[in-house]
Design a protein around this nucleic acid. Structure first.
Length: 121
DNA sequence: TAGGTGACGGACC
DNA sequence: CGGTCCGCCACCT
């Protein structure tokens, strides 16, 4: 049933994204690696594109490794909504869609104990 | 069936 | 810093 296999991938992506704590960020490659699909970051993007909105899944917490929101006309404004949602969670986003990814990066498993060295400006 | 595309990532200039 | 090119893999025409 290859047909179900594809749908299962989407569900797996959404479930992994749902694990992202509020106020933190994750990359497409990070989600892909989390579900055991290393190198399939692009497919994670497809899965989120197929996500019906509105959704309880915090899809807005997923950005690319460059630390910026993917701005493309294909999303018909969902990219702009993502920026608004991130701002509502206290994450500063530049007009260009760029944000301090290194500072809000989600670390699976390291929920306790701030092991991240404080990046002093 | 073949070719182009993209909500990606990394290397290169 | 930013712009460009290549590799990757599922989706669409």
């Amino acid at each position: 049933m290859t047909h179900e296999a594809g749908a299962g991938f989407d569900q797996r992506v959404w479930q992994a994204v749902a694990l992202i704590p509020g106020g933190q960020l994750a990359t497409y490659g990070q989600i892909a690696e989390l579900i055991g699909a290393w190198g399939c970051a692009r497919q994670v993007g497809w899965a989120l594109r197929r996500l019906p909105l509105p959704s309880a899944v915090p899809w807005h917490r997923v950005v690319n490794a460059r630390g910026c929101i993917a701005m493309t006309p294909s999303r018909e404004g969902s990219d702009w909504i993502q920026r608004e949602l991130l701002l509502a969670e206290g994450i500063p986003v530049d007009p260009a869609g760029r944000l301090p990814l290194a500072r809000y990066r989600w670390r699976p498993g390291a929920s306790c104990g701030v092991a991240i060295a404080d990046v002093a400006p």
